[in-house]
Amino acid sequence: MDAQTQLELEAAAFRRLRQHLMQDRTDVQNIDMMDLTGFCRNCLGRWYQEAANERGIDMTKDEGREAFYGMSMAEWKTNFQTDASGAQQEAFKTTFAENVDKN
């Protein structure tokens, strides 16, 4: 496979992941994603922002997050976020330290 085709396939997979998180599975909570995978919509938004910034494109954290929420984070929280249980919050502390604090 040539490099351009690989790039196009990776971009298509990325767009499908974004659609899945923004539209198909709004029921999946960020805290569950983080506890299971070590990343969530916020992480994806941060990585998106960092990639833009590395290329000289001004993008704020909120703009990066909106790319994975399809709306502002405040709107997302109002429409889809549920309260996390104590167990979820405890697991998150460990996951966050292992995956975000070290970045």
Rank of each mutant, 00 (worst) to 15 (best):
M59H: 01
L36E: 15
Q89W: 02
E50S: 02
Q49A: 09
R15L: 15
D35E: 08
T82Q: 10
M33F: 06
Q49T: 06
R15N: 11
N103C: 09
E54T: 00
Y69I: 09
E54S: 00
M22D: 01
E50F: 01
K102W: 05
M22A: 07
Q6A: 11
R65C: 11
Q88F: 07
Q88L: 10
D83M: 12
M73Y: 04
T37I: 15
H20W: 11
I57L: 04
N53K: 04
Q23W: 07
Q88P: 08
R55K: 13
K77R: 15
E63T: 05
Y69G: 05
F14A: 12
I57C: 01
F68M: 12
A67T: 12
Q23E: 15
A67N: 07
G38W: 03
F68D: 05
N30I: 13
N53A: 09
D62M: 13
G70P: 02
R18T: 13
Q49D: 02
Q6R: 07
T94W: 05
Q88K: 10
L21I: 14
F14T: 10
A67Y: 05
M22C: 13
M22I: 15
W76F: 14
F39H: 03
D2C: 05
H20V: 15
Q89L: 14
V28F: 08
E50C: 01
M59Y: 00
Q89E: 09
D58K: 00
T95Q: 05
H20K: 07
G45W: 05
E66Y: 03
T5W: 02
R55E: 04
E54Y: 00
F68Q: 05
L21S: 11
Y48V: 00
D2G: 09
E75P: 02
D32K: 08
F96W: 13
R46P: 01
L44Y: 02
E66V: 10
Q4D: 12
W76T: 04
G56F: 06
Q49W: 00
N42H: 07
E75M: 10
R15G: 04
Q6S: 10
A74D: 04
K93D: 08
Y48F: 09
A91W: 02
C40M: 09
V28D: 06
W47H: 03
D32L: 13
M22Y: 03
T60P: 04
D62R: 09
N79I: 11
R16K: 12
A84Q: 06
W47P: 00
A84D: 11
E63N: 06
Q49S: 03
Q89R: 12
D58G: 00
E75A: 11
E66P: 02
R18A: 15
T5G: 00
D35W: 04
T5L: 10
R41F: 04
D2W: 02
R55S: 11
R65I: 13
V100F: 13
D83F: 10
T60H: 05
N99S: 06
L44G: 03
A84P: 05
T95D: 01
A84K: 07
H20P: 00
Q81I: 06
L17Q: 01
A11P: 00
Y48M: 02
M73K: 03
Q23H: 12
A91R: 11
D58N: 01
